[in-house]
Structures are given as C-alpha cells and as structure tokens.
Design a protein around this nucleic acid. Structure first.
Lengths: 231, 231
DNA sequence: CGACGATTTGAATAGGATCAATGGGAGTGG
DNA sequence: CCACTCCCATTGATCCTATTCAAATCGTCG
C-alpha cells in the first residue's frame, strides 16, 4: 500500500484512537484495490477471509436461492460489509459485487480478529459498526414485513428527499436494482411509480420530482424506527 | 438477587472467563425476574435501559407499523435480545413480550456498556452474541425475500425435525404466532399445510408428522445459508 | 447503424390477504 | 358436571397485490 493511501486510511473513523502499532499490523497484509463496476468481490457460502471496507464507490450485497436473487443492501463509504462472518470465522451469508467502480480496503480476517482482541479502540469501532449493520437489517426486515411495495417505495423516496435535500431527486442506481432492493420486480416498481402519481410523484428517467411532500408523507406514514438510517 | 441465582447466572456461557469483580459490578443492579406469559417487556421506540437475557421460557420479538404487527423473532434460553440498542445507547427497534412464563435477567444498560469497555472476555462474548443475532436476521431476511410462504413453512418443518430429532414434530408455539413468524396470515398457514400434504406432511393440531422427508426436502430445497441456525 | 439491456405497458396468472362463517378446545363460573 | 364464552384454527369466497410472460419503446455504446 502506498504511503499516501496509508495516511488516508489512517484518518478513517473506524481506525480513530487505535494504537499506531496495531494499525500497522492490521494494515500490513491488507490490500487497497480499485475494482470496476459489476465485479463480484465475495460469494455466499465461502469462508470469510477478508474484511471489506468500501472507501469509494458503492457495493451491492445480494443473495441467491432456488434460482432467485435479491439485493439485500447497498454499502457506501465508509462502511464495511460481512463483519459478523469475519468475527465469527464463518462463511459469508451474502455475496457482494461492485455497483460502480469502487475502491475497497481488504483486511485479512485473521488480522482483524487478532487486533480486535488487542486494541480496545478498534474493537469498540467494530462493535459500533456491527450494531449499525444489525439495526439496518432489522429495519429492512420490518420494512418488508409491515409494508406493501408501494409504501416501501413512497418511504424510500422520502428518504432520498431528505438525503439529497431537494424535491428533485436523482435515483442513486438503476431501477432494476432499486426494485430488487425494495423487494419487488422491475415491472412492479414501474407500476408503483404510477400508483404514486396522484400523491405528487413525477418520474422522468432516474429523476423523480416530489411535488407534494405532505400528500406523499401522509400516504407513506414514515416512522424513524424503519426509515431513519441514523437511529 | 439470591446467592443461588447468582451462581446459576455466573455459569452461563456469556459470563464465562469474566473477571469476578466485573461480574459482580455487572450483576449488582440487575434483576432476575419471572414474568407470566404475554407480558410486554419492552416497547419499540423507547430508550434501551436494560439488556435482557432469557434464562427460562421464551420471548417473542415483534414490531408494529401502520396498524400492522409482525413477529420478528423468537428468543430462547440462553440468549439476549436488543443488544445492539444497548451498545449504541439507542431506542429499541422491536418490542418484546413473553410467549410463556419466563425468567429474564435484566442488566442495566449503563453497566453493560461500562463492563463492555473493561472486561475483554465479556466484550468478546457480547460480540459473538451480536454477530449471531445479525446473522440470524440476515437469514430471516433472505428467507422472506427469496422464498414463497409454502417454501418457508416446508423448510421450517425440516428445521424442527432436526432440532427435535424425530419425524413426529411438535410445534413449539401456536400456529397464529408461527404464521406471523413466517410472514403470513394464519389462514394462509393453514392452506400452506394443505399444500404440503402431497409431500408427506400430516397435521393433527400442533403435532406434525413428516412421512416422506426426501419428498419434502426435494420441495423445500433447504440451504445451510438460510436454514442452519448454527452457521 | 445495430445490438443489447433497461424500462414500460398490457394481459394473464399466481400468491396472499381479507372477510365471513363454522368447528373445536380450554378455561370459567354456576 | 354442564353451559357458556372466548380464542384458535379451518374453510370458503372474494379481492387485492405482485409475479410472470410477452411485446414495444427507449437509450447507450461499440
């Protein structure tokens, strides 16, 4: 790893407060690599050999069974994925592929576990990360068990509106992926957008305009216990 | 807490390897309480004040939104629930109620966090616990996104068959709860059982007999990445 | 330009939910 | 012990949601 990369990595929240020696040991056998879009990084069922941390770009977590496939989550900088598998020394439960060109830091699992046992600041950061991941899946799970697909879409649009601070939203990735992420087919997503038209949702490609937030929110009935990513 | 209770608790896996002093501090302000069935222990949205550990009995985690309610998980001895909320000092994302008469150990959140920072054996145990919880939700989420309701039921029956080591299964709780846990209505569960009849599933109240495992497994197509609780 | 994939729309179907009605135990009180 | 009640479970009918299959359109990229 190049020295300037090392410095950039060192400043990440996850490594804040770590002992320098421990950081060096952690990083020593690591790779910081740039992958093109649509590259499969890990495959479910395989043993967890590296902790992956997305530094730039965007990574899709997905799972397969019975010939079906579904997007489980999208990972943005600076977050890790599959931390639990690393800590438990178990197999991956999900696969991961880059959604766009991405820089990913890969730390050998064995180093992660050793430094986890050694460095309190690092283990604390890992636990916070793991807790966030846990709560994120729980929210996804609630979302899908308690709402219809149109409600999920409506709430997702409201989330994007907050994140992007504008009523004219740009979808962060293509509709096929969004559909899978929301637990529906692309065809159904298309129809869901139409269903939301009366509530003030205009669609033009990947540009969505919300013309009446109150109407939409009244329909969507968002709750922080599902929709706030920071809770 | 009574001395004999303290001894029983001390022997639990979660507290193994802990420093005695730390254990005492952890337990000092804790409660070991027996609750009747159907008692709501925590409510989603409220601040996480106690870590709960099920010692005996069974606790249901559930969530509500929009007037709907769904069972998220069942917690059996000896497991904790809502650990992530405690570690993050955040609000509960799920509610919990006893399903049957249960003994629950309640440790003040502040103690958990302090000893977590102090005692490596304890923090390690908490992280293993948290990792297990995470992977458990991921499996539930895959289950619901990748399978139909009949497939979920079939795989659940196969799981019970392994756990109970017999082809004559006893459902661990009533069908209404099972239905919600599997993400369907009671009516639909009833029909799902009928759908599985040709695959060798006989139903008599809460007794289920599997007369042809191969048939059922061939239909269910179980995978360890969803169905093995230990993976 | 031509090929390919993404998106949309239509039609038909399947999967599940809802509503209504009935049967069946378990528990309660007389 | 029996009648009564309540809730769980099942079944039928119907409705709604969502998927599947097919076809058309659109845009991008080589």
């Amino acid at each position: 790893m190049r020295p300037e990369d090392r410095e950039q990595i060192r400043r990440l929240n996850i490594f804040e407060g770590m002992d320098d020696e421990n950081f060096d040991e952690l990083i020593r056998a690591s790779y910081l690599q740039t992958f093109p879009a649509q590259m499969e990084l890990i495959t479910e069922g395989e043993p967890a050999d590296f902790l992956h941390i997305v530094i730039e770009g965007c990574v899709e977590l997905f799972a397969q069974a019975n010939g079906r496939e579904s997007t489980m989550a999208m990972v943005y900088p600076v977050n890790s994925f599959i931390l639990a598998a690393i800590l438990k020394d178990a197999v991956y439960l999900m696969s991961a592929r880059t959604n766009k060109k991405s820089r990913v830091l890969m730390i050998p699992a064995i180093n992660v576990r050793r430094i986890f046992d050694t460095d309190p600041a690092f283990s604390k950061a890992m636990v916070v990360e793991l807790s966030n991941c846990y709560r994120s899946v729980v929210k996804d799970h609630k979302n899908i068990k308690l709402r219809t697909s149109v409600e999920r879409l409506a709430n997702r649009l409201l989330r994007y509106r907050i994140a992007q601070q504008t009523d004219d939203i740009t979808l962060p990735y293509d509709k096929k992926l969004l559909a899978s992420n929301l637990g529906m087919t692309p065809e159904n997503l298309s129809r869901a957008f139409n269903t939301l038209k009366p509530y003030g949702v205009r669609v033009d490609g990947n540009k969505i305009s919300i013309t009446d937030v109150d109407e939409l929110a009244n329909f969507a009935k968002p709750t922080p216990l599902i929709d706030d990513q920071s809770v």
